[in-house]
Design a protein around this nucleic acid. Structure first.
Length: 408
DNA sequence: TGTCCACTGGAAGGGAGGGCTT
DNA sequence: AAGCCCTCCCTTCCAGTGGACA
C-alpha cells in the first residue's frame, strides 16, 4: 500500500491541460481586447523602423487583460524583429521591484548581457546606476520599449523623481531611444504626478474597460475548450462563474481561478463532471484561503494590532477607536515580551490593515471626545479564530472563543 | 460661537542592514 | 578598514480638524 493509493483511486482527472487554466498562461488570442491590441500596436509600430514611439499610459482595473495584452504584443513584436535589431521590449513589474534602485537594476540587467558588467543589486549610487543604464542603452543603438507594470506602486513610496529620470533619458541618448509604457489599475494615478511628468508619461492613453458578463463567459469558454474534454463542465457552470466574477469585479483572472478551483474540487471528490455546486464550494474556499493567506503573512506587529482590535470588539459595544487599540496593544506586547512601537506607527499599521480589507477604519469626529478612527472588523468568525490561534500568541493564556461576536 | 479633544496625516530624520569602492 | 550609498522601519514633531459641548 503506497501513501498515494487511496487518493489516486478517488482522484478523477478532469482537467486535461492544467496549464491553460493558470493565470500565468498567455493565450494565443485575447478575446474582446482586439481594439486595445490594435491601438497599442499602432502606437509602437514605428519602433520596428527605429523611430521612437510615444510613451503610453495604460489604465484599467485588475484582470482586464493589461498584462496579457502587453505580453502578447511583446511576443508579436519579437516575431517581427527576431534578432531585436531595431527594437527590444522589456517588462518590469513594479510590484515586485518597488524602489527606484530596483527598477533601474531590473531594466539594466535585461539590457546588459555581459555578466561582468552587470549592476549589483545594491551598493551603487543611483546616479551611477543611471549613467551605466544610459550608456548601455545607447550602445545598443535601437529602440527600447519599457513596460512598467503596476507603475503606481513605485510612485506611492518614492514620488515621481524616478519618472523624471526615465522620461528625460532620451535627451541624453544619441543612438538609442526609450519609450515607456506605464501600466496601472489606479485611475487616479495621473493626478498624483507633477504636471510635467504627467504629460510626458501620458503622451498616449489607453483604457482597458472591465469585461462584461458575456465577454467573461466567452473568455472562459475558450479556455475551457482547451482545458477540458467535452462534456466535463456542466452547462451552467461557465455562465455562473462569469456572473459571479462580473458582479464582483469583472476580473478575468478571478473568473479563471474560480473555474480552475471548481474543477479541482470536483476532481478531489472523485466526481466526473464539474457542477455549480463545485463552483459554490470554490467561491467559499477561495475567499477563505486568500484572507487566511493575507493574515498568515502579516508581520507580528500587525497581528498583535489585529488581536487587539478583535479583543476590543469582544468586550465593548461602543465603537473601537485608535486609542483603545493602542492601549490593549501595549499590554499584549508586554505579555509577549515584545517592545511596543510608537502610537504613530501603530496608527499607520491600522491604516495598512484597512487597505488590506481586514478591517474598516473610518476617520470620525466625536466632538469633545476628539477625532479619531472608528474601527470595525471585516472578517468572519472562522478567520477571527484563525488569528487568535496564530502561533505568535502561544505564550499568552489560552484563548476562549467569544460567546457572541459583533460582525458586519 | 468658540473651545478643545484625540487624534490624523505629513514631513523629516535616524539608524540598522544590505553591499560597493578605495 | 573606512567611507559611501540605498532602502526599510521606525520615531519625533507638528500643524490641522470635525463636531459635541459649554
Amino acid at each position: 500500500m503506497g501513501a498515494f493509493d487511496e487518493s489516486k483511486t478517488k482522484m478523477n482527472i478532469l482537467i486535461k491541460n492544467r496549464n491553460i487554466l493558470q493565470t500565468t498562461y498567455i493565450p494565443d488570442q485575447l478575446p474582446h481586447r482586439e481594439n486595445e491590441v490594435k491601438n497599442i500596436v499602432e502606437i509602437i509600430t514605428p519602433s520596428l523602423y527605429k523611430h521612437k514611439p510615444s510613451n503610453i499610459l495604460i489604465t484599467g482595473k485588475t484582470g482586464t487583460g493589461k498584462t496579457a495584452v502587453l505580453n502578447y504584443i511583446g511576443k508579436e513584436l519579437k516575431k517581427e524583429d527576431p534578432s531585436e535589431e531595431n527594437c527590444s521590449f522589456l517588462y518590469v513589474n513594479c510590484e515586485i521591484v518597488d524602489n527606484p534602485y530596483g527598477m533601474l537594476f531590473n531594466i539594466s540587467n535585461q539590457i546588459i548581457k555581459d555578466q561582468s558588467n552587470k549592476i549589483p543589486f545594491t551598493g551603487w549610487s543611483l546616479d551611477r546606476v543611471y549613467d551605466t543604464l544610459i550608456n548601455s542603452i545607447d550602445k545598443e543603438n535601437k529602440i527600447f520599449i519599457i513596460v512598467l507594470d503596476e507603475i503606481d506602486r513605485i510612485l506611492q513610496k518614492n514620488g515621481d523623481d524616478i519618472f523624471y529620470f526615465l522620461t528625460t533619458m532620451n535627451e541624453k541618448l544619441k543612438n538609442s531611444k526609450v519609450s515607456i509604457i506605464g501600466v496601472t489599475n489606479n485611475t487616479k494615478f495621473t493626478e498624483l504626478l507633477t504636471s510635467k511628468i504627467r504629460s510626458r508619461l501620458g503622451e498616449e492613453k489607453v483604457v482597458f474597460p472591465p469585461y462584461n458578463p458575456e465577454q467573461l463567459q466567452d473568455i472562459l469558454r475558450k479556455r475551457a475548450e482547451l482545458a477540458f474534454e467535452p462534456g466535463v463542465v456542466e452547462e451552467g457552470v461557465i455562465p455562473y462563474c462569469a456572473a459571479v466574477s462580473a458582479q464582483d469585479s469583472g476580473d478575468a483572472r478571478k473568473a479563471l481561478d474560480l473555474l480552475r478551483v471548481s474543477a479541482e474540487k470536483a476532481e478531489r471528490r472523485g466526481d466526473s463532471i464539474v457542477t455549480e455546486a463545485h463552483v459554490k464550494e470554490a467561491i467559499n474556499a477561495i475567499e477563505k484561503d486568500t484572507v487566511q493567506e493575507v493574515i498568515r503573512t502579516l508581520p507580528s506587529q500587525s497581528k498583535i494590532i489585529l488581536r487587539s482590535i478583535i479583543e476590543n470588539h469582544e468586550k465593548k459595544d461602543t465603537s473601537v477607536i485608535t486609542g483603545d487599540v493602542y492601549s490593549l496593544y501595549k499590554e499584549i506586547c508586554k505579555g509577549l515580551n515584545i517592545s511596543p512601537k510608537s502610537e504613530k506607527r501603530v496608527a499607520d499599521l491600522i491604516s495598512e490593515l484597512d487597505m488590506l480589507g481586514i478591517i474598516h477604519a473610518r476617520v470620525k469626529s466625536f466632538g469633545r471626545q476628539g477625532r479619531t478612527r472608528e474601527i470595525e472588523l471585516n472578517i468572519n468568525k472562522d478567520i477571527i479564530e484563525f488569528v487568535m490561534k496564530d502561533e505568535l500568541f502561544e505564550p499568552l493564556s489560552k484563548y476562549k472563543p467569544p460567546k457572541q461576536t459583533k460582525l458586519l
